[in-house]
Amino acid sequence: LRTVEMKKGPTDSLGISIAGGVGSPLGDVPIFIAMMHPTGVAAQTQKLRVGDRIVTICGTSTEGMTHTQAVNLLKNASGSIEMQV
């Protein structure tokens, strides 16, 4: 596991798309980074990659989380965001 910290302002975009989660079209698979926009906050860290499994978001485990719950957690996060992948 590695921990990645990002700074995100209220109008900034992380610039990632995620897939997976409980009840997702892919089945109940762990949440992972499906796409990254090169100008997004996540890409700027140069520490995240497409395919990385997201284990925690700001200390909250993604295990058993639906896709929608994970998306909302990421969208609503601002300031210092910590992810374990």
Rank of each mutant, 00 (worst) to 15 (best):
L1C: 09
L1A: 06
R2G: 04
E5V: 15
M6Q: 00
K7D: 12
K7I: 14
K7R: 13
K8S: 08
K8G: 07
K8T: 10
G9V: 06
T11Y: 14
T11Q: 13
D12F: 02
S13H: 15
L14K: 01
L14W: 15
L14I: 12
L14T: 04
G15A: 02
I16H: 04
I16T: 01
I16D: 03
S17R: 15
I18F: 10
I18Y: 04
A19E: 13
A19C: 09
A19W: 08
G20I: 01
G20A: 01
G20C: 05
G21F: 00
G21V: 01
G21N: 00
G21H: 04
V22C: 07
V22H: 09
V22K: 13
G23H: 05
S24F: 05
S24A: 03
P25Y: 11
P25K: 10
P25D: 13
L26S: 10
L26D: 14
L26Q: 14
D28Y: 01
D28S: 06
V29S: 09
V29R: 09
V29G: 08
V29I: 12
P30S: 06
P30Q: 06
P30A: 05
I31Y: 01
I31A: 03
I31H: 06
F32G: 05
F32S: 11
I33H: 02
I33L: 06
A34D: 14
A34V: 07
M35H: 15
M35L: 10
M35D: 15
M36A: 02
H37A: 12
H37M: 07
H37Y: 09
T39M: 13
T39K: 14
G40S: 06
G40H: 05
V41I: 15
A43R: 05
A43N: 09
Q44L: 11
Q44D: 07
T45N: 08
Q46V: 00
Q46D: 12
K47Q: 14
L48I: 08
R49H: 14
R49T: 12
V50Q: 09
V50S: 05
G51W: 04
D52M: 08
D52W: 00
R53M: 13
R53E: 15
R53S: 10
I54S: 01
T56W: 00
I57Q: 03
G59C: 04
G59E: 04
T60G: 03
T60R: 15
T60Q: 15
T62V: 10
T62Q: 01
T62A: 05
T62I: 06
E63W: 06
E63T: 12
E63A: 12
E63G: 05
G64S: 09
G64Y: 06
G64M: 07
G64V: 02
G64C: 06
M65I: 05
M65E: 01
M65Y: 01
T66N: 10
H67Y: 12
H67A: 15
T68C: 10
Q69P: 01
Q69M: 11
A70V: 11
A70L: 01
V71C: 14
V71I: 13
V71H: 14
N72T: 12
N72E: 14
L73T: 08
L74S: 05
L74C: 06
K75L: 09
K75Y: 11
N76G: 12
A77E: 08
A77H: 12
A77V: 12
S78C: 12
S78Q: 14
S78M: 08
G79L: 01
S80R: 14
I81V: 13
I81P: 03
E82T: 15
M83N: 06
M83K: 02
V85C: 06
V85A: 07
V85N: 02
